[in-house]
Structure formats: C-alpha cells, structure tokens
Design a protein around this nucleic acid. Structure first.
Lengths: 219, 219
DNA sequence: CATCCAAGCACGAACGTTCGTGCCGAAAAA
DNA sequence: TTTTTCGGCACGAACGTTCGTGCTTGGATG
C-alpha cells in the first residue's frame, strides 16, 4: 500500500505521536524504529518524511509548539490585558500540564532539561521557544503594571521568573511523586505573588479558594 | 594496573566521572563504552564493577548523593537552626549549581526530568532522594517557625515548594540561556519570600544586596 | 625465606540487538 | 507515461552483555 495522498495529515499524525513519546522519554529516547512500529508504518517510509533524526526532532518541537500555543497562549490572549490575563496564562499552563495534554507532562520541560547542556540546533530551538515564553509572561505582567493593576515598581522579568518557577516545579513534582497537590501549591504561590504585587485598584481575577472548597463540599 | 585492594578508589573515580557525564547527557546518555573510553579502561573491565547498566545508574545516583550532601546539606547544618539555616540551605544549593560542581548543573535536576515519567528502580531511587530533600527543606523551615523567626501560620511544605521552585528554575534557566542572572533572580525571590514570612523578631541572615553591590563597585 | 596456588581483576573479542541511514523496486497518483 | 511515495532490505556503528584468558598479588605451604 503506497501512494500519494495527504502527506500533510499523515505527517501531523506522526509528529503528534512523536511529541507524546518525547514528553515521556525525551527526544533522544524517541527512536525512528519504535515510532514507526507504534504507528504501523515502515521505518524507511517514516524516515522519508524528515531525512534525518535531527530534522524529526526539530519538526517535533515545532508541532509541540503548535499544541502549546493552542492550549495555553491563544486562550489566554482572548481575555483583556491586565492582571486577569496574567492569571489566565498561569492557570491555563497549569491546566495544560495537569490534564497531561502530553502524557509525560509539559513537553518543553522534558526536552529543555534534556538538551540544556548539549550544544546543537535542537538546543537552540528549545532555547528560543523558552525565551519567547519568558518574554510573553514578562510582557503580560508589564501590561498589568502599566494598567495600574500591579505596583509601579514591579519588575516584570523578576515576577515572570517567579511565576514560571512555580509552574514548572508543579509539573516536575506532580510527575515525580504522582502528587496532584503540587498544582494547588503552585496556584497558592502564584496568588500570593500576584496579590503582593497588586495595587488596591485591582480586583483579583482568581476564584476564591475558600468559596471553591465550599462549593465542592455542597455537591 | 590490576590487583586487589584498589578497587574502592577506582570505583569511586568511575562513579564521579559517571555523575559528571550524566549531569549533561542523562543516565541513559551515559553509555558504558563511552565512559570506559573516557577513563582509558576496557568496557568489560568497567562493566564488571556493576554487573548491569541499571546497577551502574543506581550507583551513580548514590555517588552523586554523596557529593550533594557534602556540598550543600552538611555545610548548611553547621549553622544553628532557624532562618539562618534556611537561608544557608538555599544559598549553598544555588552556589553548588552555579559553580557547576557537576558540569551539567544539578545532577538531580537532569536525572529527575529524565526519569520522572519512566517507571523503574531508577525512578524510585531518584524520587526517594527528591522526597528527602523536600522534607529537609520543609523541616528546616518548620524549625525556624517554631523558633519564632517565621510567622506562626507559615506552612512549611508550601514555603519549601516555593523555595525549591526558585532554586531549580535558576539552575534550568542559567543552563539553557547561559544566563547567570538567573541566580540573582532566585536569591531575590527567596529573600522576598522569607522576608514576607519572617517575624519582626528575626534578623535577616542574608547579605544586604545594596551593600554587596557597593562593595563590588569599590574594588 | 622461597615457592606456589587460588582468587580477583582487566582485557580483547564477539554475541545479538537496535540505532540511524541509504538504495531500490512496486504501486498509486498525475 | 511520468512522478511521487512508501515498504523491504541491508549497511555500519554503537549499544549492553558474555566469555575466555592472561596478569597481579595475598596468603598458605614447604
């Protein structure tokens, strides 16, 4: 069985599966033979799509970026700038990790840790994606500051560092210890962090945890 | 060089090198052939020390634990319990990461991210080490609370989560972007976090950053 | 003290498997 | 037909692992 048809659709299916595997076993643990067997196609047929393993790795990163944008960034950008958007960005990220959109947790966490000390094109691509995410969070924080919802002297890069730290650590801890409580920890920490930097003019965009607990108890 | 008595020293040398490699390329990227070539010994000779690759991985984790204890935990335990010890623990950890005691940054960060979604003995060992570190930080925080240096209603597990988040993220960011500024970010965040939880009775154990900047400027 | 033995260790070679990668032919699309 | 695409096959290298063989050496033997 061979032929022409929509190589685009097949390619996307390959890459989605590749991202799933890489989120668990890393981009080196992602082998062409296993991926092909997993999808029921031949090694060489799959190989033809990419031409080299490194190209497959780079394409997988691009595909995962698309998923990430759709799951986290774009939804958060539908709410107006300000503290609410900052919270949405964090909450969406935690939800994306918690729901195991990738079975091994955040794809980029796994791949970043794998390549952060290994020079090459893969590392450069991952680093660029990380930098962009960092800039997005920081500029979203800065928007809130300029809108008067965060204190004037808030440092966007510093606050972005802290928010990202909570998110990534929640991902790591929940995976390693199978402990969903890590996501609660992260949400608490983020709330406290944002509340400490918020001005009196701002109205908190996050649900009241006490009210939430009460509501769940009433069911 | 063969013979009897020296096997302990040689074994330690092997494991120290193995931990260095694994901190960069992970415990799977650590191959017996490359490690042997690196040390100038034969594959099979090295293999005989451990009997299997998994056993080598486990022994490497134990060896790295020893380094970690010597570099971070034991020095911090020389200062009396309280806020000062909490700060020492964090500062020593950041220094251990920043000085690249392992060339790929914190050994446990790399290995944890590698195995957190891969069941097996290696994962269990790494998870146990992580849990112990977590407990150490939390109980050190709790000591400070009971001594009246942190607010009575401080939650040790929550604060430990936040402190660890800053440390690990500093490690990751500094590696990925070659950005030592991440360590400053972490120290700032930790200071702010501890200051927010500290009581008036406590005297801050960290150096005044402004004074430090001044001192450096005067050189 | 001299000698020999048994054991421990490291070595080179080779095992079978899997890796990434090319080549080529068949079949489907144009 | 021509073009494109994919499967079968084979390659060299590297993987973890096993095996047989010497060398080194501590301790028992004479």
């Amino acid at each position: 069985m061979a032929g022409r048809p929509r190589d685009e659709r097949a390619r996307n299916a390959i890459l989605r599966r590749a991202a799933d595997i890489a989120s668990k076993d890393g981009l080196e643990g992602l082998s062409i033979g296993r991926l092909a067997a997993d999808l029921g196609v031949s090694k060489s047929g799959l190989f033809g799509y990419f031409g080299s393993k490194e190209e497959l790795q780079l394409a997988t990163i691009r595909a995962a970026t698309g998923v990430y944008l759709g799951e986290v960034v774009h939804p958060a950008l539908t709410v107006p700038p300000g503290l609410g958007r900052v919270w949405q960005l964090c909450d969406r990220w935690l939800s994306y990790s918690e729901r195991r959109v990738f079975p091994g947790g955040c794809f980029f966490f796994t791949v970043t840790a794998e390549f952060d000390a290994r020079p090459g094109r893969v590392r450069d691509t991952v680093a660029a994606a990380g930098l962009e995410w960092n800039r997005l969070v920081a500029s979203t924080v800065d928007d809130a500051r300029r809108l008067g919802e965060l204190a004037e002297d808030t440092e966007p890069d510093q606050l972005a560092f802290e928010l990202i730290a909570f998110m990534e650590t929640a991902n790591a801890v929940s995976l390693l210890h199978d402990a969903p409580v890590a996501y609660q920890r992260a949400r608490s920490a983020i709330r406290r962090c944002l509340r400490a930097a918020a001005t009196d003019a701002a109205t908190p965009p996050w649900p009241d945890p006490a009210a939430q607990t009460r509501a769940e108890g009433e069911r």
